[in-house]
Design a protein around this nucleic acid. Structure first.
Lengths: 200, 200, 200, 200
DNA sequence: TGATAACCGAGACGGTACGTCCCGTCTTGGG
DNA sequence: CCCAAGACGGGACGTACCGTCTCGGTTATCA
């Protein structure tokens, strides 16, 4: 979010950033999220909970969405291994089941909230893209391309669309909330997208 | 003061609701949405724009999300005909293309915003479900069931999941916003879900 | 307050005023006053408590101060006998003690509130004068004039000022509230005003 | 975040109160009072007139009565010299004439309004007592006690009641408003209370 | 014996002010 | 240059009453 702040200023003048304060803020954010949900995490509550001044918050983050995103990403699994056992269908199923499980937990509520915020705040949208979606899509994309090169899926199809066909239904259920996100649902989606609805 | 009350439990007590004010509010909501987006539609701005008192707003709507949802649904096509020409694939394609086109317009921005609000406001979530998603899903579900009974899609599959497999990717692109919602994308999704990715 | 309403209109047309509603309002006013004090008696609360519509309230009274004044005067002793036993000092003492006792009760709180309202509302001020103060002052004034004609108090002094010298301290204590209103205090005032502070 | 806190329990934490804003509010209060009277001084008007946010008003004052009281007391003569020329009657007359004159001006309208507010708001009542009445009564009380010790007024009488006998009539005329507050009236009261009504 | 006119309840209406909350910025003193 | 504390202007929130206004329905009196 701000990791390039000191890299430009050569001399490294003045007091360095308090890592204590940084961690206190992220911890406070997670605590407040658990207590009262996204709406409960105001900048004032964050400052009070973390024992940090509001000025410090605004020095390092542009708004509450940024803080929450940071807190979430610090918690979330940093690497997203898309395993490659050779069995493409099994790999995909494993991946989708894992995502469904993750999204049905409290992490799901969080990205739902951040996605919601991103609808009205371009900065959040940008950050969510680059720091959450892009790396995960890239990993999945590689796996699909590998499968394609091995003839396990048709060549010539639009991988970007295929990714949305897989992930989209999960995130849609997360956000629309009409039905719970189960592993069975994940399996269904994998089945549909790999084999199609039409009878063979 | 009850001794002279008429027993006819009449429902039309008191001054009736002003339909003028009602329409003025919905119109003001749409006008403000076009001007400055969702965040610009505050209850105060609505009252001012519609020439209506805040008390009147809160008398009929619990919050701004409800007003905007009402304004949107009054604008949106009330009936959602899922045509049945006999050619299931063509019908589905037509339906999905229409949705993609609608969501890529300003109506898309609106439901995105309302969906966002619904993440933190259960009442909005409830209203969005019952008044937007449910009727549309029901129509599409009927068409799928018809296709199923005619053997055009496999019997025994979960229609609810199939609906999400079709709609989910469109709404996901709307919300995640990484790529524009084109008719080509709609076609791709129809292709994936009907035929599958795997080579025949 | 409005007793001349029908006298002008010659024909006495239409439905007559509901005496039931009138009494219900006055009763509701007293009830609300006891419950939550003057500030608690709003026109809306009055209407609700009396089972009367707001329109009816505003048809007969110009505002809440008028209602409360009416309610108070309907309760308060209608006639104010300033007795004349021949012993002027005793009569005065009796009168002042009675007033002190009345003002220290809940009636005192009421006129304090009405006097307060009268500071900002000329209509209340006018009504309070003509319907409360004027008749009471007139009675006391007569007694003083009788005493003067009998040589019990000095001739040539300003009776209006003398009335204020007697009543003023009581109402001042009522309003300023620094010390309780006791009969001893009433006696003191009578003593001061009749005999003076200076040693004989 | 507490490990590096300084132990010096300093009172000057945080940004200090803006004296500019403070004065602007008091000034705005006086200006609004002159324009439209007590009822015209709303917290919103105050904020607008002073160029101050409502939050700042509520940070320092509990309500409009407190603001107006502050504005009044800042304007009113801070010290209340009860002079002692040796001639007790002359001193008293001077004092009472001064008060009558003050109360008949715009300051009178103000305390009338504040006294009115104090009837329904205990905090205002408390503040009015401690900051207005108490110091003024104390000064007058001293003068009376001096006169008593010099034998100019009878020993053994209740000075508190005597103060009310003097001040009460003036404040009563101010509030009841039946007759103007003149210096002649002040003289009359002094005469009554010092010499009594009964002929010598 | 209607007709008429003023009454009644219920309650929605445009307003105004309330007091609270949070925003993002600023101004202190101290590390 | 960082930090905490916290005051500042701004602005929206949701509530409470104000006094006015439609409604449908209810009495009395007069024609």
């Amino acid at each position: 979010m701000n990791e390039e702040r000191h890299e430009v200023c050569c001399k490294n003048l003045g007091r360095p950033r308090s890592e204590t304060a940084h961690q206190a803020v992220l911890g406070a954010a997670m605590r407040l999220l658990e207590q009262g949900g996204y709406a409960h995490v105001t900048m004032e509550a964050l400052a009070a909970e973390a024992g940090v001044s509001k000025a410090t918050l605004y020095r390092w983050w542009p708004g509450r969405a940024a803080v929450i995103l940071d807190a979430f990403l610090a918690t979330a699994s940093p690497c997203v291994p898309t395993l490659d056992t050779g069995d493409f269908r099994a790999d995909l199923q494993c991946q989708m089941r894992g995502l469904a499980q993750a999204l049905s937990g409290c992490a799901g509520a969080l990205i739902a909230a951040i996605l919601a915020e991103a609808q009205s705040d371009p900065e959040t949208a940008e950050a969510l893209q680059t720091r959450y979606f892009v790396p995960r899509r890239a990993a999945a994309q590689q796996r699909l391309e590998r499968a394609q090169s091995q003839g396990q899926i048709a060549s010539g199809l639009d991988i970007d669309s295929a990714l949305d066909a897989l992930y989209g239904p999960l995130y849609f259920r997360l956000l629309a909330g009409h039905t719970p996100l189960t592993t069975e649902f994940a399996d269904s989606i994998v089945g549909f997208v790999l084999d199609g609805l039409t009878p063979k």
